[in-house]
């Protein structure tokens, strides 16, 4: 059996990200980390591949920027990494992204389960997850908080999903695409041996031609990036002789702001 996960490099969680005068998104000299949600999907991929006695593969779709996330994945213990890149392809468009991802899964040809983190913080969406499942025609189970049972011989999976209105236990057929939430596991830290192995790894790069697919036309395009309006800098520090006086003043202000 074979479990695949997708990842990307995103700016460090603590980094300030802004749009510079040329309209480009930048985070200065700060490095990238593996997309924070992917810590959980990487861990779950290692666990599930271990349970099933099978293989694990991590894939990134896009530029060399994502090699760092792939190396981090290998250092954690994912067995193989590969990158799909295609010059001129608009990776911001989720239909283009999912066509390349589906091409890679089809080329691997023996995949039982694809595990995603909840979303990617850079593109700030999870649409590519569902669109990959759709283009493969596979079962989609999102917002998974626990895998209750995965039977790779029988081709079934049962999961717990966490939704706005509560939790749901759902069974489905494999192959499947799932997205997992924080809390499903405790992601491991890469150990020294893992880091050394990952540093030496050669990561193959597949193009659309390697996948044997015709790239679809992008349905969407990003027009421009810009900085959110500055929040009013005026902070009023509430003072008073007693805590009660401060509380009363604050409440007066909140009534005046009409938020109470």
């Amino acid at each position: 059996m074979h479990v695949v996960t997708f990842t990307r490099s995103t700016p460090d969680t603590a980094a300030k990200v802004w749009v510079n005068d040329d309209g480009e998104v930048t985070w200065g000299d700060v490095g990238t980390v593996v997309n924070p949600w992917d810590e959980y999907s990487l861990e779950e991929t290692i666990v599930q591949a271990g349970h099933g006695g099978g293989e694990s593969t991590v894939i990134a779709i896009g530029s060399e920027l994502h090699n760092d996330a792939l190396k981090h994945s290998l250092a954690m213990g994912i067995q193989k990494a590969l990158r799909v890149d295609e010059a001129g392809a608009d990776m911001n468009d989720s239909l283009v992204w999912s066509a390349l991802a589906a091409g890679a899964i089809r080329k691997l040809n023996d995949v039982d389960l694809v595990i995603f983190g909840k979303e990617s913080v850079d593109v700030a969406t999870d649409q590519h997850t569902y669109q990959l499942a759709r283009s493969l025609g596979w079962t989609m189970l999102s917002y998974v908080s626990q895998i209750m049972e995965a039977n790779y011989t029988a081709g079934t999976i049962q999961v717990e999903r966490m939704l706005e209105r509560g939790k749901q236990i759902v069974s489905g057929r494999l192959p499947a695409v799932i997205s997992v939430l924080k809390g499903i596991n405790e992601p491991r830290y890469p150990n020294f041996l893992g880091i050394r192995k990952a540093a030496k790894a050669q990561i193959p790069v597949w193009s659309a031609a390697d996948l044997g697919i015709d790239l679809p036309t992008a349905a969407t395009s990003a027009l421009r990036y810009f900085n959110p309006p500055q929040r009013e800098a005026a902070t009023e520090m509430i003072t008073g002789d007693t805590v009660k006086a401060k509380a009363d003043t604050l409440i007066d202000r909140l009534f005046a702001e009409k938020v109470l």
């Binding site: 749009v19 913080v121 700030a124 900085n227």
Partner: peptide, 8 residues
Amino acid sequence: AYAGKVLM
């Protein structure tokens, strides 16, 4: 985008 740090 970028977790709300920028808009697009």
